[in-house]
Design a protein around this nucleic acid. Structure first.
Lengths: 218, 218
DNA sequence: TTGACAACATACCCGGTAGTATGCTCCAAG
DNA sequence: CTTGGAGCATACTACCGGGTATGTTGTCAA
């Protein structure tokens, strides 16, 4: 049996991860609609047959890229969720890690981003619609984790904004921004990424009205 | 003569503006590649013939939407360029107006945004490539105006950041963000938009390290 | 009155692409 | 050693959508 596309374990998933990476690169470079399955296959040095053996449709493939990207995000902030008392410290850590994940897994994150847009537009089949709504739920609950900590920071009196909904949106936007304007240099050392993540994090936290006295170590 | 698509004056442009608006709405809802010329025509209650009478290609139509969006931006901040001495005050005004323009002309701004992405990807013909590079230049020079004021704010000692390039990117991103997460309410009064623009502006200015004492009237 | 042209509509072509049907090969279980 | 299926490749179809060629109508100037 094949063409399952969800919750695979073992070797199947390993084979598919190669496909996922190629797909993410294609979708990032040309966008979902402009990328053909043949493009992805070419990048893999194979043909359509391989992809359609593992995925029932192009939309399925994209959905799996989306899911994988969100899994990377969730996995990155997971260890931080219960590790802090002070909401400011927690928010600092989450923001920094989130931004670093954006930079390190840029192709997937661009797909996640485009997925949000594709959601609002028309998903053809009701089955696809269902999948996209589920994936949107993943992203939504991820955002909620940030919003809760952001609200905690406000209650502690160290942050200052009005609508936590809007604040969270802009906050995440600032952290996500490098996936658009950052293009990896030839010498893409890890310090460089850390530097950029720091600046984005500082900007985002200051945007929430958090004083600089709390942001020395970002 | 027809199919000129640039620097029209008088009645021709008026007819085209109707097309521009329909195209902007389509491109916003489904994206450039997923929108067909027939979709745009349907929204106009007409057929392809009308569009291809005014534009030589789909890419030309998109380019004009892009251009129009950038013209709206440039026109909005133009009166502010020589009206302020204090860089902080100037930056406040520019940011607020920019954000408001984003909210009020959202379909066009979404197209401008997608245009940036389409640029990096492959433009087919060298002629299109040339056009897109020119449009990218418009956007670039627009960003430079902000960067100069942002650098001025830093020199005045009232802002605090490290790289003005990165700072400008995140700054504009924060101001642009509502075109993605804001969907107009049924009661979309103008105060609502002003409120949102204020919050985005405060966030962006604070992100630059500008103290709250300068931001009372945003 | 006419004819020329703008401003469309209609009908058609054709290349590209998602999806399918089928063939091939290797490997492991029986 | 043979057989069934995983893991692909090859060949093909069907259709959508960009672009064009041509027809139709209103208008305005000579």
């Amino acid at each position: 049996m094949s063409a399952t596309s969800d919750s695979e374990t073992g070797t199947a998933r390993i084979h598919q991860e190669e496909i996922l990476e190629a797909a993410a690169l294609c979708f990032m470079e040309r966008g979902y609609n402009a990328s053909s399955i043949d493009d992805v296959a070419r990048r893999l040095g194979s043909t359509k047959g391989r992809i359609y053996h593992h995925y029932r449709s192009k939309a399925d493939l994209f959905a799996d890229v989306y899911r994988y990207g969100m899994e990377l995000n969730a996995a990155a902030i997971k260890p931080l969720c219960r590790a802090y008392d002070d909401p400011i410290e927690k928010l600092k850590a989450m923001a920094k890690v989130h931004c670093l994940t954006m930079l390190r897994t840029r192709p997937f994150q661009r797909c996640v981003w485009e997925g949000v847009s594709l959601l609002m537009r028309g998903a053809t089949t009701p089955e696809q619609r269902e999948t996209l709504v589920e994936l949107q739920g993943l992203r939504e609950s991820y955002a909620v984790r940030f919003r809760e900590v952001i609200e905690g920071a406000k209650e502690s009196g160290k942050a200052d904004f009005e609508s936590s909904g809007i604040a969270t949106q802009i906050f995440l936007m600032a952290l996500n921004s490098p996936i658009f304007w950052y293009s990896p240099r030839d010498t893409d050392d890890d310090e460089q990424l850390d530097e950029i993540a720091s600046r984005c994090t500082r900007f985002a936290l200051q945007g929430l009205g958090i004083g600089k006295e709390y942001l020395q170590d970002v």
